[in-house]
Write a protein that binds this DNA or RNA. Structure first.
Lengths: 253, 253
DNA sequence: ACCTAGCAGCTGTTCAGACCACACTGCCCG
DNA sequence: CGGGCAGTGTGGTCTGAACAGCTGCTAGGT
């Protein structure tokens, strides 16, 4: 019947106020907060309290500070870097296994490709084609992976769903870091690499033809093929149940 | 060709060292870091520097501080609360339209139900059945919505994918806030309400029978039916493209 | 011998003041 | 007209201090 008392620490109250001001739109991305010493007066707290609050907001990706600026901390729009950093930490703490990230990529990738097939513009198609060209031109694994990521980023953009876009970007970054090279798409001029690029061309063709079902199916299969080699039988099964029924039998063994 | 120079701030170096120590397993969850004053000596920096570093680590969910402890900051295992908090902020700041939230729920809900059908235990089935009972017993809209949310939460739990679970929980909260009552599932003893509950029973039956395809299809349709009434024709189309081909034609008009 | 109230010490929290390095501004001089 | 240079305000860091809360020990009473 009693609610737990919340012992508010001073800097938490400061964080909450600034957070609300940003979320409510009072401060838009690109705006500048008052300088630290002014915030000290406004909030009626000590400088270190304000600074600790700013450190928290900075680690969340809401603000950015730079010495010498005449305008105070800058409100920056994207919290994606902060989310990526934390998610990466979660994976490193073994709180989230890699197989679940790949699982998510298969789910979200299929949906994004399906949506993109219906909503894409000609400009999206051009950017996807450019990304595939960059994959072919890549000489090292990092460049190749970056181009691959670029392709998927365009797909998410074309899908027009911000949730898929934000989370997909974060998960993609995290997987890129975690499986760097070892499990990722092959970089050499091998048969696997050509096959991987050919898969992307087929996906692009499906999206061009507004064939969402095919695009989704191809995207799932490509992701499964790219990562299944590095997983054991049980983990592969957790991925295979997400594939279409007809291909599930042939790949789940 | 040039990499941006990283002006190291002292507290960032401290964060990095402690972060690495935790990730490497040198400090396991439940362990205690040295007290602030000891860290000051170890790192050779000022007190405020150590404290700002600890604030960052705390906002990432890696450590927890409490006054009076004889042992210093505690290393805590789960980063999930921090992730949820940041993701909620991202959703709030992007001002994501309702249709995109529903779109995401259809995508993630279908996948979660598919996975749950394969991985569920008997205990999960009991909890789902209990949630449905709670829906039937509900007399007001809020209780009904809470029971519905509970059902989906169990499904996500059974699906065993933490990314799906974390993001799904945040999005579910967001939709609950945004469409509170107005668009949500019907609360009265209407035909729609009985139909809504019957849908959940069918989903539970499919999950019980380990029929992932059916569970996924039913979940998508139920979500679509629940929210499509409040959306216009163009928005309904963005949802309908996510449904199965055979039902798409009959519902997309 | 056992229990309990009180005390001392350590912890985190907050504050105030000071100094430094840096970036921007505007003036002055070539 | 252009470039160098000091002034000024910014964030970054450090020091010292005081306060509140918890822990663990201890002295006193039962």
């Amino acid at each position: 019947m009693f609610t737990p008392v919340d012992k508010k620490r001073a800097f938490e109250a400061v964080v909450q106020q600034i957070e609300s001001a940003i979320y409510s739109g009072e401060y838009a991305p690109g705006d500048f907060l008052p300088p630290e010493r002014t915030l000290v007066e406004d909030f009626g707290v000590g400088r270190s309290t304000v600074r600790e609050a700013l450190r928290i907001l900075e680690s969340m990706g809401l603000v950015r500070t730079s010495p010498g600026s005449r305008s105070g901390p800058e409100v920056c729009g994207s919290v994606t870097p902060g989310l990526t950093r934390m998610l990466r930490g979660a994976v490193r703490m073994e709180e989230i296994p890699v197989v679940e990230l790949v699982q998510y990529r298969i789910i979200a990738g299929a949906a994004a490709n399906r949506l993109a097939a219906h909503l894409r513009t000609d400009e999206h198609l051009e950017r996807m084609a450019a990304a595939i060209e960059a994959m072919e031109a890549a000489t090292d694994a990092a460049t190749f992976a970056a181009a691959d990521d670029g392709f998927h980023a365009v797909v998410r953009d074309a899908a027009g769903n911000r949730v898929l876009g934000i989370v997909g970007g974060v998960i993609q970054d995290a997987t890129l870091d975690l499986v760097a090279g070892a499990v990722g798409p092959p970089a050499g001029a091998s048969r696997m690499r050509r096959e991987f690029i050919a898969d992307h061309r087929r996906i692009l063709a499906a999206i061009t033809g507004r064939d969402g079902d095919t695009a989704a199916r191809l995207a799932s299969q490509t992701l499964y093929d790219a990562y299944s080699g590095a997983l054991d039988k049980d983990q592969r099964h957790r991925l295979a149940v997400l594939l279409e029924p007809d291909v599930r039998d042939s790949r789940d063994h």
